[in-house]
Deep mutational scan, measured.
Amino acid sequence: DHWHVHIDGERIRLDGASEEFIRTLEELIRRGTDARELKEIIKEYLR
């Protein structure tokens, strides 16, 4: 599956992301997590 998110107007691909990770991201977004912080979390995950 190819997922991607838009954060700060930037399109970030989440290739190979699990549904669990996507749900976690959605939860963080709902909580109002800062965009820079979200991008860091995604970069760490994709390593």
Rank of each mutant, 00 (worst) to 15 (best):
T33E: 05
L28G: 02
I22Q: 06
W3F: 14
W3I: 11
I29P: 00
E19Y: 11
D34V: 06
I22E: 01
A17F: 07
R31P: 01
K43M: 14
L14F: 05
T33W: 07
I29R: 03
H4P: 04
E26G: 07
E19N: 10
R31D: 09
R31E: 11
T24S: 12
T33D: 03
V5L: 08
I12E: 01
G32F: 03
A17Q: 03
L28N: 02
E19F: 10
E37Q: 13
I7Y: 04
R13K: 11
I42R: 00
I12K: 01
E40A: 14
H2E: 12
E19C: 05
H4C: 14
D15P: 11
E20V: 04
E26F: 10
G32T: 03
H2T: 14
I29Q: 04
H6C: 13
I41C: 03
R30Q: 09
R36T: 14
D34K: 08
T33K: 02
D15I: 10
H4N: 07
I12H: 04
E44N: 09
L38A: 01
E37D: 09
R30T: 10
D8N: 08
E37L: 14
Y45A: 06
D15F: 12
E26D: 10
K43H: 13
R11P: 14
K39H: 12
I7P: 01
A35R: 05
I12A: 01
G16S: 07
L14M: 06
S18W: 03
R13F: 15
Y45T: 03
S18D: 11
R47D: 03
W3N: 08
R47W: 12
A35T: 09
F21N: 01
V5W: 05
E37T: 15
I12P: 02
I42M: 03
R13E: 15
L25Q: 00
D1E: 12
G9N: 07
R36M: 13
K39V: 08
W3E: 05
A35M: 09
H6Q: 10
I42C: 02
E40W: 10
E20D: 08
G9H: 04
I29M: 07
R47V: 14
I42Y: 03
I41Y: 11
G9W: 05
K39N: 08
D1G: 14
I41W: 09
R30M: 12
I41L: 14
R36L: 11
D34I: 05
H2L: 07
I22M: 09
H2G: 04
W3Y: 14
I12N: 01
L38M: 06
D1L: 12
H2F: 10
D34R: 05
E44T: 04
V5T: 08
D1V: 08
R30S: 12
I7M: 06
R31Q: 14
L25E: 00
E20L: 09
G9L: 06
E19M: 14
H2S: 14
R30G: 09
E27N: 09
R11H: 15
Y45P: 00
H6D: 15
R30C: 06
R31K: 12
I41P: 00
H2I: 13
E40T: 10
R36E: 13
R36Y: 12
E20W: 11
L25F: 04
D1A: 08
I7V: 06
A17H: 04
L46D: 02
L14Y: 03
I22P: 00
I12W: 10
S18R: 03
E10T: 05
R11C: 12
H4M: 13
L14E: 00
E20S: 11
G16D: 08
E20R: 08
L38V: 08
E44Y: 04
I22H: 05
E27D: 10
I7A: 02
R31T: 10
E37Y: 13
H4L: 12
V5G: 06
H4T: 13
D8F: 02
E10F: 05
I12Y: 13
I12G: 01
E37S: 12
I29Y: 04
G9I: 06
E44W: 06
L14I: 15
E44Q: 09
E40D: 08
E37M: 13
E37H: 12
E37I: 14
R36S: 13
D8P: 01
R47S: 15
D8L: 03
K39M: 14
I22Y: 06
R13I: 15
R30N: 12
D1C: 11
E19G: 09
L46G: 02
L46H: 04
G9Q: 04
L46P: 01
D15K: 08
F21V: 04
L28A: 08
E19R: 11
L38T: 01
D34T: 15
A35I: 12
I12Q: 02
E44A: 09
E20F: 08
G16Q: 07
Y45F: 10
I7Q: 02
R30D: 07
E26Q: 13
R11V: 15
E27L: 10
S18Y: 02
E20Q: 11
E40L: 12
R47Y: 12
L25P: 00
L28F: 06
R13W: 15
D8Y: 03
R11E: 15
L28P: 00
R31V: 13
W3K: 11
D1Y: 08
D34L: 07
A35C: 08
I7D: 02
E27C: 06
D34A: 07
D15T: 10
D15L: 07
E37K: 12
H6N: 14
R11Y: 15
F21D: 02
H6V: 15
L46E: 06
R23Y: 08
E19D: 13
E19V: 13
I41R: 09
G16N: 12
L46W: 11
L25T: 01
E20T: 11
K39S: 05
F21G: 00
F21Y: 03
A35V: 09
A35W: 06
G9Y: 05
L28Y: 09
I12D: 01
R47A: 15
I41S: 03
E20C: 03
F21I: 06
T24K: 13
T24V: 13
G16Y: 10
H6G: 04
R11D: 15
A35G: 10
E20Y: 09
G32H: 05
S18M: 04
E20G: 09
Y45M: 05
I7W: 03
E44K: 08
E40G: 07
D8E: 12
L28D: 01
A17W: 04
L14V: 15
T33L: 10
L25S: 00
D8V: 03
L25G: 00
K43T: 13
A17P: 05
K39G: 06
W3H: 07
E19P: 14
K39T: 08
E20I: 08
E44R: 08
R47G: 14
S18V: 04
H4Y: 14
R23H: 09
H6T: 15
E10L: 04
K43P: 00
